[in-house]
Amino acid sequence: MEVKIQFDTVEKSLANIRSKAQNLDSSKSMGDSGSYHLSSLLHLVHLNQKLGNLLTAYQTVTLKNEAAAKKAVHA
Rank of each mutant, 00 (worst) to 15 (best):
H46F: 05
A21L: 03
A72W: 10
Y36F: 15
Q6A: 13
K71W: 00
N23K: 13
A68K: 08
D32H: 07
I5Y: 07
D8M: 03
L24E: 07
V10K: 02
K20V: 03
K50G: 01
S27C: 04
Q49F: 05
L38S: 12
K70M: 08
K12M: 05
V73N: 08
T60S: 14
N53T: 10
H46V: 00
G31W: 08
V10I: 15
V61G: 00
Q22V: 03
V73D: 06
L14R: 03
A68G: 02
Q22M: 13
K50L: 13
H46M: 02
G31E: 10
L63G: 01
L51V: 07
V45W: 08
V45C: 02
Q59A: 03
S26C: 05
K71R: 05
L44A: 11
H74E: 15
D25Q: 05
N16M: 06
Y36G: 03
L42W: 02
G31L: 08
A57W: 01
N16S: 14
L44S: 05
S35I: 14
G31N: 10
S33A: 09
K12I: 02
E2M: 08
N16T: 14
Y58A: 12
S39C: 01
V61K: 12
Q6H: 09
L42A: 08
K71G: 03
E2P: 04
G52Y: 03
N23P: 01
H37L: 11
A21V: 01
D8Q: 11
H43R: 10
S27A: 15
T62A: 15
V3L: 15
N65E: 07
N53Y: 02
L24Y: 05
K28E: 12
